[in-house]
Design a binder for these strands. Structure first.
Length: 110
DNA sequence: GAGGTGACGTCGT
DNA sequence: GACGACGCCACCT
């Protein structure tokens, strides 16, 4: 069961509220994965399984859209974030700290 | 069964 | 402050 650990990342990312963003490290910490790389890797896997996953709400520690290149139209990641009211500039989230959403909240509710 | 990969993060120089 | 190297661990070939 635990082998499908990426499903946990899946569930968590799925709970990211609209207009909010989070980073890989926060998810890794929330799930006690121990490595943010696992989150990025998990998202890359989940992307092909469930494209509906709001992976565009997950960025790196600097708020940069590091995974934009994995989207079909790479710029769609920023477009979707902007559509949710999140300002994007130079492929990075402005006021990232202000829009940051802690995945721990999702776990707390669960 | 062993090696390589990866949407990152932290520490050291 | 910017750049480089290492660690981290599940999944794939």
């Amino acid at each position: 069961m635990k082998k499908e650990y990426f499903l946990r990342v899946y569930e968590l990312v799925e709970q990211i509220p609209e207009g909010r963003v989070t980073n890989y490290g926060a998810i890794a910490d929330a799930l006690a994965l121990g490595s943010a790389r696992m989150v990025g890797w998990a998202l890359s896997q989940s992307h092909q399984i469930e494209p509906l996953l709001p992976a565009h709400r997950v960025v790196n520690r600097k708020g940069e859209l590091s995974g934009r290149h994995h989207f079909d139209p790479p710029e769609s990641m920023a477009e979707q974030l902007r559509a949710e009211g999140i300002p994007i500039e130079d492929n990075a989230v402005l006021n990232f700290a202000s829009y940051f959403w802690s995945p721990l909240e999702a776990i707390a509710q669960d």
